[in-house]
Structure formats: structure tokens, C-alpha cells
């Protein structure tokens, strides 16, 4: 029996029933830009960087199920411009000052913006003033860099079993909130070894005393594009799940 197949940019991609477009693409070695998606967790679908055209309609590849015969457009000028606009929006919404951020060089937002050819942020900056939480001895939470991907929320809930994080507020006033009476990280059971501290794609959650350990030129995205790095890391995870 032939496996079901769909096309990404004209290239046939086979998939297993139940896979999303993102999973099928990853397994086939096709990179679809993404930030809030990480195949280790339930898909979330909030960043919209993985927007692809499915039979002419914009869909999030990370949540949309693959189906036999679908025509998917991914690497097109139009979609990459849309994605670049999203990275620009994320840059102006928060305070993403790469030269002073410890995550620089290992940051997925930055790397995705490189990949998409973003040279400026285009929009006026919001310069938000959100509460910084340095209370924990080993972990720093800089909310000004949060992009609301909810990966820490999912990791803390589904892997660590601690439910340390949630997204609160509404609209442009959304905030990452912390599960303790004081609202501070120090009063939660979070530990530096938790998955939740390792999944932040940006520099919002950092392990203290490890900043700038890797010299410029040797950091993750100094050596590889986010496309290469992402496929290398995520392909085995998808393969393991779907065989």
C-alpha cells in the first residue's frame, strides 16, 4: 500500500496518519520556521511563524493535520515576508537588545530573524516595562523578552509536573505569571535542572552564572542556521514518535 502523500512546494512528502504538516515536513527534512513549536511538547500554535498555505489558505503547520493530496506552500516570498513581519513584531513588542542579552547567538528568535533576512524591526518600539524576577538563586526571569510561546508552561506542566508558569493578562498586556503566593520564582519548587528552564527559545528564562560562556563565533547559530540546527535536533524526536 502506498503511504499517504502531500506536496510541500511541489515536493512530495509522505506522512503517517495523525501527523501534523510540521511533523511530516520535519521527518522529510523540510524546515518550516517556528518558535512556539517544539516536537517534545503538545503543539501550541501561537507564534504563527509556521504559517503555510494549505490549498490556498493560511494555516499553522504545527497544528494543522497533514492530509493526502494537500498542496502546501512553505518557502515562498509571500510567506517569508509574512514571517519576517512576525519576527519584527516580536522584536518591537518586547525589549530584545541582542548585544546585551546572554542568549544572543543561541536565541531562536534572533536566528529565525537572521534566517528570514530581517535587517530592522520596522515598527515603532513598545519598550514595555514588565516585572523582572531575579529572586531565584539559579534562575532569572526577564519578562521583557518573553514571546508568549508557552514552552515553559508546557514543560513545567507536562515534563516537570510542577506547573510553575502560566500566561496571564490579555492582549498586548499578556504576561508570563509564576505559580506562588508571592508570584516570585524563588517561592516555587522550580530548579535549574528542570525542563522548563531549558526550553525558552529566547532570553526570558536564563540559568544564572552561565552567561556568555561560549565565545562569539562558536555559539549555536554562529555555526549553523536555525534551519540546519532545528532539523538536526527535531527530526529524531519526530521519528521516534511516529516510527
Amino acid at each position: 500500500m502506498t503511504r499517504p502523500t502531500f506536496q510541500i512546494d511541489g515536493k512530495p512528502v509522505t506522512f503517517t496518519e495523525g501527523q501534523t504538516i510540521m511533523e511530516a515536513a520535519t521527518a522529510a527534512g523540510v524546515y518550516i520556521p517556528h518558535l512556539c513549536h517544539n516536537p517534545e511538547f503538545e503543539p501550541h500554535g501561537s507564534c504563527k511563524l509556521c504559517t503555510v498555505k494549505v490549498n490556498g489558505r493560511n494555516c499553522s503547520a504545527c497544528t494543522f493535520p497533514a492530509a493526502d493530496g494537500q498542496e502546501v506552500l512553505n518557502d515562498t516570498a509571500e510567506l517569508n515576508e509574512l514571517r519576517r513581519t512576525i519576527t519584527q513584531m516580536l522584536f518591537v513588542e518586547g525589549n530584545h537588545l541582542c548585544p546585551s542579552c546572554e542568549k544572543s547567538g543561541n536565541c531562536q528568535l534572533q536566528a529565525a530573524a537572521y534566517f528570514l533576512g530581517m535587517t530592522d524591526a520596522h515598527f515603532p518600539f513598545f519598550y514595555p516595562r514588565r516585572e523582572l524576577d531575579a529572586s531565584h538563586p539559579d534562575i532569572l526571569l526577564d519578562r521583557d523578552r518573553c514571546i508568549f510561546c508557552a514552552l515553559c508552561v508546557r514543560a513545567s506542566r507536562d515534563v516537570d509536573g510542577k506547573n510553575v508558569f502560566a500566561i496571564g493578562g490579555r492582549g498586548i498586556d499578556s504576561r508570563l505569571i509564576v505559580n506562588s503566593p508571592s508570584g516570585r520564582l524563588a517561592d516555587t519548587p522550580i530548579a535549574a535542572t528542570d525542563k522548563a528552564t531549558r526550553v525558552c527559545p529566547v532570553g526570558a528564562i536564563l540559568i544564572k552564572r552561565h552567561g556568555f560562556e561560549v565565545p562569539i563565533g562558536e555559539r549555536v547559530y554562529d555555526r549553523h542556521t536555525i534551519a540546519e540546527e532545528s532539523l538536526e535536533r527535531e527530526e529524531p524526536i519526530v521519528e521516534a514518535r511516529h516510527g
Binding site: N95, L97, P99, F125, Y127, P128
Partner: peptide, 18 residues
């Protein structure tokens, strides 16, 4: 032409913005 981080997004001097 905006040259460099400060011209493009305000750069380090914007640390005073909050």
C-alpha cells in the same frame, strides 16, 4: 542608512527606557 544596533533599535542606551 541606519548603521548598527543603536540606530536600528536604540541599542544599549534604551536600557534607560523602562
Amino acid at each position: 542608512v541606519a548603521v548598527g544596533a543603536c540606530a536600528i533599535n536604540g541599542g544599549l542606551p534604551t536600557l534607560r527606557n523602562p
